[in-house]
């Protein structure tokens, strides 16, 4: 059965519990590599300490979401949360997904069971989100202790990070389903690295000339960073809804393309 008919016949509700099997499988595999998971939590911390505090001493205050000056570490902590969520989801959805799809034949063997293609896609993305969510919770706790959170709205930063992970992961996975060889990942890097560096992550968007701001504001990472920074700094406004809708739409389009592609690849 194809994902399209699954949607048409109202099957997706069953899809979630079934996708759980795939999550279990991933958990099982990762049990042996838990140190890597733990280290994934430390990585943004290293950046926070190095860039936020180390370099931050030389940067001083920068302009916050509402134009008010905030310490550099307060400015960059939500950006690191966002980039961590994006990088984790993209790595899982592109590199790992590609190897499962093309080398491991993991999916082919899973499809010999009652799981459907849609279950596979949902399960993979859910798995990426679970990992990302754990990292996000850990990171939020640390920055709260360090006094880098300025508002109770910050509790919503974790779901916001997940939303960003969902959007970028789903699109990354859709892109991966078109890839033929690992060298195609250069393309992903060509998109991800500039986004990482230029999406108002390391310095305020006001640094750019007006014309460039419009382009930067269009990137998903900027949307995610703006959303999360607003929450942790406590500048709440209606434009946040735009960020949320943008990311949701991006995620569902990615998911839709992925499940169509998987149908064609796996069920031929």
């Amino acid at each position: 059965m194809s994902a399209a008919t699954a949607v048409a016949t109202g099957q997706p509700r069953r899809s979630v519990p079934r996708a759980w099997h795939l999550i279990e499988r991933n958990l099982f595999v990762y049990r042996r590599t838990w140190t890597i998971i733990v280290s994934g939590f430390f990585e943004p911390l290293f950046y926070l300490v190095g860039i936020g505090f180390g370099l931050g001493r030389l940067v001083g205050d920068v302009t916050g979401p509402a134009g008010q000056p905030i310490p550099y570490a307060v400015f960059i902590a939500p950006a690191l949360l966002a980039t961590g969520a994006m990088n984790g989801a993209v790595a899982e959805a592109t590199f790992n997904f590609f190897f499962k799809l093309n080398f491991n034949r993991t999916f082919q063997s899973i499809l010999a069971t009652p799981l459907s293609v849609r279950d596979v896609a949902v399960g993979e993305i859910a798995w990426a989100l679970i990992r990302g969510g754990l990292y996000a919770i850990g990171f939020m706790m640390v920055i709260a202790v360090l006094g880098l959170v300025r508002s109770p709205w910050a509790v919503l930063a974790v779901p916001a990070a997940l939303l960003l992970g969902f959007a970028t992961g789903a699109v990354g996975m859709a892109a991966t389903s078109f890839m033929r060889s690992p060298t195609d990942f250069d393309l992903i890097n060509i998109i991800v690295l500039p986004m990482f560096l230029f999406s108002a992550t390391f310095y305020p968007i006001e640094t750019y000339p007006e014309a460039i701001r419009g382009i930067v504001a269009f990137t998903p990472l900027y949307q995610g960073v703006a959303l999360i920074r607003g929450l942790t700094v406590g500048v709440i406004g209606p434009e946040m809804l735009i960020h949320v809708v943008y990311l949701l739409a991006m995620g569902f389009i990615g998911l839709w393309v992925t499940s169509r592609r998987l149908d064609r690849i796996l069920l031929k």
């Binding site: 370099l55 001493r57 030389l58 940067v59 001083g60 920068v62 550099y72 250069d186 890097n189 060509i190 690295l193 500039p194 560096l197 230029f198 390391f202 310095y203 640094t207």
Partner: peptide, 26 residues
């Protein structure tokens, strides 16, 4: 291409972008 692009991006973002704040402040 990667060897060209990566340092260019890093120097632009960190060196010039973030650097403008560092130079002004310190």
């Amino acid at each position: 291409v990667t060897s060209f692009v990566n340092p260019t991006l890093f120097l632009l973002a960190m060196g010039l972008g973030l650097g403008s704040y560092v130079n002004a402040r310190s």
